[in-house]
Design a protein around this nucleic acid. Structure first.
Lengths: 332, 332
DNA sequence: GTGAAAGCGCTAACAG
DNA sequence: CTGTTAGCGCTTTCAC
């Protein structure tokens, strides 16, 4: 056991113990260059004996490149982002890379601060779910960071590759399904910033010849409270609504809760479709019909992109799937 | 915009631009020592102009201590661990520390590998939910890492502080509640390694004078599939069971699913209490009675411990709370 | 108040 | 095949 305060052994210690030069130790341990079997064994033995682990600090400083990848998500407790993170972790692990994680809380300021830390720390590749309108990414890009956006793209940052899902088709499929059931007064509950989804919603409505009612598109902050308030407000003030599509699992959760509270029955009184196939969608009563997107896959692909291609990778659009369960019925 | 391949500016660049020595730049930027107002302004201006960010690599190498804290959880997609991670992230952020995250999959081998990476990376403080029986922590401790365990303690590693919840009381309260409802054939669905909870379960039963039936204590791996198999097996083979307590939210989820599949009604046919108050517990039908423990708090406290006290901190036990909802009824 | 210089642990030339 | 050496970017004595 190493007494508190004894310094960890360095390459020099190993060199001395093995009676060779430091360069030799470096070569043997990193597998670079060649060494006689005898030398190699001596080095390996000494390293093991001293419990030596090369310091990434020294190595990175010298090589002028740091390993590791940064991961910035709004909220790690949101199942969607947790899965995304899992995908990143999984890909990073198979690539032998470590990952720095940060929660931005969807706050550009916090995001900027985290980016700063990442840069100082020497992390040069990051996967991020950009918050706000992504204005904080200028400095990062200027510093030469390889960044890949996930889940959301940033308008005006087309040179930054992004892995997103085909929200357009997802929303359209949902709206068509609902319209096919006879619904005309369909509401969309979105998080602030989900402009793609909102636009797709308008388009889908228009394509079906359903007039869009701006009051039926409500945006909320990405917190449970705000989501609940939005859902409850909608259900309360607009009793003519017969269907709602929730732009994310938090919004969906809020809608279920609000509906229950206000004694609005699903699907009898209102039909519900939610983005994200989270585990509880199936446990819910009734089981929820969802627009599924694979967050885990999204994370994995983003990690692949940032690892393999460096910058100038191509963006990726992942498919969505409508999973029909029991939360939608014909127009009442 | 910095052309691809141009190196980032160093302290030396700033020194030259400001026409001072590097030492002065270092002092000004780190707030150490003193400098004339004039010099300070020159330095600050130059640093801003060059978009300079000090390299943590250089600094850490020199100071022979790295910042940052490591976080090792079994599975980031499990809400409990996601919340725990959130607590850690939150504390780390307010302390200005970055965090490395890894998912062990509850596999000691993967865990050991991640620990190795952490050590190489120079991270010297880690918070971990140890997997297996924690045999992989020897090397880490020997390297002088400051480690704090969370959620689970490791037998025989009493010198490692741990933040756990009062599982004993949690389980006892649940069992007493169930027993009070008239239940005698109570099953416990545990994850492999939840020895504390299992022991507490036995004790609680004994204290109530209920004979313990070993067949009613079933352990499963920490995967959805294994959990489902265990739950389904239990419900199928032991129709005399009138109540089950699930040792975690995955197990609880599996029980709900299996019960539904097997047409076992909750709480009419069997009562259910689950560890962890996850959001879906309330959305579930019926809403689940749970033993709540604050994972977020656990993570925060663990981070505090590892940050403030270094090693030789004291362990912490957090309270649990029985939240009664609608998944338990009188013995049928 | 400020600069020069010595390293932190490591790798990559460059000799031998 | 192997050892010596020169830094990577930074902080910290130690002189001035």
């Amino acid at each position: 056991m190493r007494p508190d305060g004894q310094r960890r052994s360095t390459i020099k210690d190993v060199a001395e113990a093995a009676e060779v030069g430091v360069a030799t130790v470096s070569r043997v341990l990193s597998g670079t260059g060649s060494a006689s079997r005898e030398t190699r064994e001596k080095v390996l033995a000494a390293a093991a004996r001293l419990d030596y682990r090369p310091s990434a600090l020294g190595r990175n400083l010298r090589r002028r490149r740091t390993g590791g990848i940064g991961l910035l998500v709004p909220d790690i407790t949101d199942v969607f982002y947790a899965r995304l993170a899992d995908g990143v972790l999984s890909c990073a692990r198979s690539a032998g890379e470590a990952v720095w994680t940060g929660a931005t809380g969807d706050d550009p300021e916090r995001e900027a601060h985290l980016i700063g830390t990442l840069i100082e720390e020497g992390v040069e590749r990051v996967i991020a779910v950009p918050s706000g309108d992504g204005e904080m990414w200028g400095p990062a890009l200027r510093h030469g960071l390889g960044v890949v956006f996930a889940e959301r793209a940033v308008a005006g940052a087309d040179h930054v590759p992004a892995v997103v899902s085909d929200e357009r088709t997802g929303v359209r499929t949902a709206v068509e399904y609902l319209a096919g059931l006879g619904h005309r007064r369909i509401a969309f509950l979105a998080r602030h910033g989900q402009t793609q989804r909102v636009r797709a919603f308008r388009e889908a409505l228009a394509a079906r010849g359903v007039p869009v009612d701006d009051e039926l598109i409500v945006q909320a902050q990405a917190t449970r409270d705000a989501a609940y308030a939005a859902a409850a407000g909608l259900l309360q003030h607009r009793s003519d609504v017969t269907a709602v599509v929730a732009g994310g699992n938090l919004l969906g959760e809020a809608t279920v809760l609000a509906a229950r509270e206000l004694d609005v029955r699903v699907p009898r009184d209102v039909s519900l479709i939610m983005f994200d196939d989270v585990p509880w969608a199936e446990l819910c009563h009734p089981p929820l019909t969802v627009i599924s997107q694979s967050a885990q896959d999204m994370g994995y692909r983003a990690a692949e992109l940032v690892l393999r291609e460096g910058r100038r990778a191509r963006s990726i659009t992942l498919p969505t799937e409508l999973i029909v369960r029991a939360s939608c019925g014909p127009r009442r």
